[in-house]
Nucleic acid binder design. Structure first.
Length: 216
DNA sequence: AACTCGGGGCA
DNA sequence: TGCCCAGAGTT
């Protein structure tokens, strides 16, 4: 596992959170918005959004329609606008206007599940965590760190056992970059992958079965 | 466990 | 054009 992380680190020396933000609150909003869409799209929206809305009260000061319109370029925008206003209401009512630092409290917020909470605690509060999104899940299963039918939670636990705690967050970032830019869902770059010799899935893909459709 | 939300990216 | 996606909530 350590060897794999080193190799990926060589491929992506500057792997980091790609969401634009300047504090825990903005990060929470950005991660919530990023569900099922790319960080690049989120950044285009938050560039303007974070100029207009700076505090939880700012998000509550406008009608829901207006907030929806402000994030309209992002998929699932109606759900997310509603989540944001409910979340801001909870921050003000229950947390003194600040984003809670505890994982268990974060997951109580609407629109914040396990993955989002892990990204917030690790990336905003420096708490080691491995956020398992579909990239991390896919890569972990292809490389054999988890089994094909493992749940997201099981993948997270197995990764945590394979890596020392102080490297959890870095592991998360590296696996994300590897999955997003190299070990992609549709067209994994197996022919030029430095991990091919230790990757079962990669070897399987390099010599496809005759009855399988092979893209070329 | 399956369904829903939804515009963007990519073939 | 059609398919899939840096998830989470509801049933």
């Amino acid at each position: 596992m350590t060897h794999v992380l080193d190799v990926i680190g060589g491929m992506f020396p500057d792997a980091h959170c790609e969401l634009h933000h300047s504090n825990p609150f903005e990060l929470t909003i950005a991660v919530l918005l990023s569900a099922q869409c790319t960080d690049e799209t989120v950044n285009k929206v938050t560039l303007h959004l974070f100029q207009k809305y700076r505090t939880p009260a700012d998000y509550l000061a406008v009608p829901l329609d207006e907030l929806e319109n402000d994030i309209k370029r992002i998929g699932l925008y109606r759900n997310k606008a509603l989540f944001i206003q409910k979340l801001c209401r909870m921050l003000i009512d229950d947390y003194g206007g600040d984003v809670p630092r505890e994982h268990a409290e974060l997951t109580k917020l609407p629109g914040v599940g396990r993955k989002t909470a892990n990204v917030v605690v690790s990336n905003a509060f420096g708490v080691p965590a491995i956020a398992v999104d579909t990239h991390v899940e896919r890569v972990s299963k292809r490389l054999g760190f988890a089994k094909p039918d493992d749940s997201v939670l099981e993948v997270e636990h197995k990764l945590m056992k394979l890596v020392p705690r102080e490297l959890w967050t870095e592991t998360h970032h590296r696996l994300i970059f590897f999955g997003r830019y190299h070990c992609k869902a549709q067209n994994p770059q197996c022919p030029v992958c430095p991990l091919l010799d230790i990757c079962k899935e990669g070897k399987k893909r390099m010599k496809p079965a005759p009855n399988r459709k092979a893209k070329s």
